[in-house]
Design a binder for these strands. Structure first.
Lengths: 201, 201
DNA sequence: CGGATCTTTGATAGAGGTCAAGTGCCGTGG
DNA sequence: CCACGGCACTTGACCTCTATCAAAGATCCG
């Protein structure tokens, strides 16, 4: 299954019949308020599961960020699969657990961190996606590619586009980052950004 | 295992050896920032699972809200259990999924809702805990007991104590609720509160 | 009762949102 | 190859909501 840029393939509230695995590309997951306010609850990449939270209807919408390829599994067939591969059930639970831990951190970000801390956290999160969770290499410059527009970053961090933009500019002026292109940012002082992210500066 | 009021029984970051089920009473789960800012990520009640997000160390702290009794299961013994009761694994995943859905809603609350909307959402959430998710009975008055202090409500909603207090007062003045006692609130117009919660007013 | 703690209320300040121009980037077409 | 238009991003001015700081009640418990 292939979905092209900007195309929505899960409608929030629609009946949840399938379960997806992202094979190529990126996806944004979000929930909406009636007046259009949007919270992006996560970005999914190759290998990520989607629709784990199996209920009657989807609790979120999903939209392609660039071109995406997915595997679609009908829920109906899942019970047959888990029966055949008992380990699968365990694997799915692990995946759900991992997601739960991430969400707890994001709740702290949304509920308690300042705008600076949120943006710093976002940058570090992206850096770790590339170079693993190790703190090593944090001393050097890290090149980052942000495939999503500012509006997605804002909705992910619970901020406005303007605030995100202003903070990127501030970080640049402080010598923490370099903005090579709109989608390409260099972290010049990852260690210091990491400190800001934890609320220590 | 019994824990008395205010006692902490899971330390954030400590090695995650056990898995808990709340049998009696209530528990608050939270994460902390280095400077003491706190985000309460959820309240657990009788029947709820704790420590599902099984990783090396606990991603959250837990503290008793009143006296609590718990069952403690060492992780080590879990694999034996799930082997004996294959259904358990499925049950755990369902529980994790349910939690994931709740967390998505909370992320939207923390990232995108106003203070009024957050407090209204909290009240409706509590009401549903008593009377089920049905919208019926929403027409009448609902009596609520809030077992947690304002500081917990504030840290749950990503607000300050003062803001929570002011909004309770405002709701009272608007005839939406009645504050019988600090811990006892009557929802006089559940339907209208529900609308506020969704951002429709 | 009396003191500690929690909650409410008031006054003020500040972080981030809103509104409104720019600015830069990129694709299209002349 | 350059001009133009559109769109995303940035920047600025201003405002609002919520946090902060400070008392003044409530409530609880010895």
């Amino acid at each position: 299954m292939t979905v092209s840029d900007g195309r929505s393939f899960i409608e929030e509230g629609s009946p949840a019949n399938d379960f997806f695995v992202v094979t190529e590309g990126r996806v944004k997951l979000f929930t909406l308020l009636p007046d259009g306010r949007r919270q992006i609850t996560g970005f999914a990449e190759g290998g990520d599961f989607l629709g784990l939270a199996a209920s009657r209807s989807y609790a979120f919408g999903a939209e392609a960020l660039g071109t995406v390829t997915l595997c679609r599994f009908p829920h109906a067939g899942m019970s047959r699969l888990t029966h055949r591969f008992p380990n699968l059930e365990h694997r799915l639970r692990e995946e759900a657990s991992r997601e739960l831990i991430l969400m707890q951190a994001r709740m702290t970000l949304l509920g308690r961190k300042t705008a600076r801390e949120r943006v710093a956290t976002f940058l570090i999160e992206r850096a770790r996606l590339l170079h693993g969770p190790d703190t090593e290499q944090m001393a050097e410059t890290i090149e980052l590619d942000l495939p999503m527009p500012r509006s997605d970053i804002a909705d992910y961090l619970g901020l406005t586009i303007e605030t995100v933009s202003r903070i990127f500019s501030a970080f640049k002026k402080e010598g923490l980052i370099n903005i090579r292109a709109i989608t390409h940012i260099s972290l010049l002082a990852p260690e210091r950004i990491s400190l800001i992210a934890e609320g220590a500066e």
